[in-house]
């Protein structure tokens, strides 16, 4: 199930991860190595714990009072859940883009600059804003209206603004939780193109419901499914995307990607 590559190329690793909501175990026994500068997609039916697992990678689950977890997330040789690790710092290193575009109700410029400022950025802010917007392939569309509200943009633009905002704080890993589910197909394509460009500098983990998207734009794919007995999610199969979509090892995987359930 795990990749054949050497451990030095891993951006982040999950070891025996279980996430609980109260007494309910949402995902169980996840072991996963995410490779650097690759796009890894989590696919699976609704409720199988893809987003829960994704949030475990930057401790966003901490914000849900009833959730807790065990197991380890190893990042740069350190478990993110060790007591001496500050979750605020984790989230800066491992950024996140959400399902619904959620720009701040402030100017486009301020949307980018705020994250940098609160993280103590000392350089030229204009330059950072421009570079981040360029990296998110939205500069040309917004360069003349940086003082307008982020909410004045279209859905696809808003999502790219959110990506620009995320990369402005220079993370190493970007977690994307179904970033295209609220977007039309053209905006979706643009985000996918963007992901390919970002891949050169960032490691990306994406949760998606869209099998074509996973097939088109990811290097690795993890298929999660829900255990019929305790209703918790577990990882069925993890392999290179091309292999999974052409030659799935597991019966469930094959049924899912050919659309027979889910």
């Amino acid at each position: 199930m795990s990749s054949q590559n050497g451990s030095t190329s891993y951006a982040v690793q999950a070891k025996d991860v279980n996430v609980y909501y109260g007494d309910f175990r949402a995902v169980k026994n996840i072991n996963l190595d995410i490779e650097k500068n690759k796009i890894t997609a989590f696919i699976g039916p609704s409720g199988c714990g893809k987003s829960t697992l994704l949030r475990a990678f930057n401790r966003m689950n901490d914000l849900i009072p009833i959730s807790h977890m065990n197991g380890e997330i190893i990042y740069r040789g350190k478990n993110l859940y060790d007591d001496d690790v500050d979750p605020v710092e984790v989230r800066r290193r491992i950024g996140m883009v959400f399902q619904k575009p959620n720009p701040f109700p402030k100017s486009i410029y301020e949307n980018i600059a705020w994250g940098a400022r609160i993280n103590g950025y000392k350089g030229d802010m204009d330059q950072l804003v421009e570079e981040s917007l360029r990296s998110a392939a939205i500069w040309d569309e917004v360069k003349d209206k940086l003082d307008q509200s982020g909410l004045s943009l279209s859905g696809g633009q808003q999502q790219r603004l959110c990506i620009a905002r995320t990369i402005a704080v220079k993370p190493e890993i970007i977690l994307m939780d179904e970033p295209c589910s609220a977007l039309d197909p053209i905006a979706t394509l643009k985000i996918e193109e963007l992901m390919r460009q970002l891949q050169e500098q960032y490691t990306i983990i994406i949760v998606t419901h869209n099998m074509q998207q996973a097939a088109r734009s990811s290097d690795f794919t993890a298929f999660l499914n829900m255990d019929t007995e305790d209703r918790s999610g577990y990882m069925v199969e993890f392999s290179e995307t091309s292999e999974m979509f052409t030659n799935p090892q597991n019966q469930q995987t094959e049924e899912y990607i050919t659309g027979r359930f889910g």
């Binding site: 914000l63 710092e89 996140m96 959620n102 993280n119 995320t166």
Partner: peptide
């Protein structure tokens, strides 16, 4: 205030 605002802020490494 939508929770997405809080998540957006926290996701950027804000306290």
């Amino acid at each position: 205030v939508p929770n997405s605002m809080r998540r957006a802020g926290m996701g950027l490494g804000a306290t």
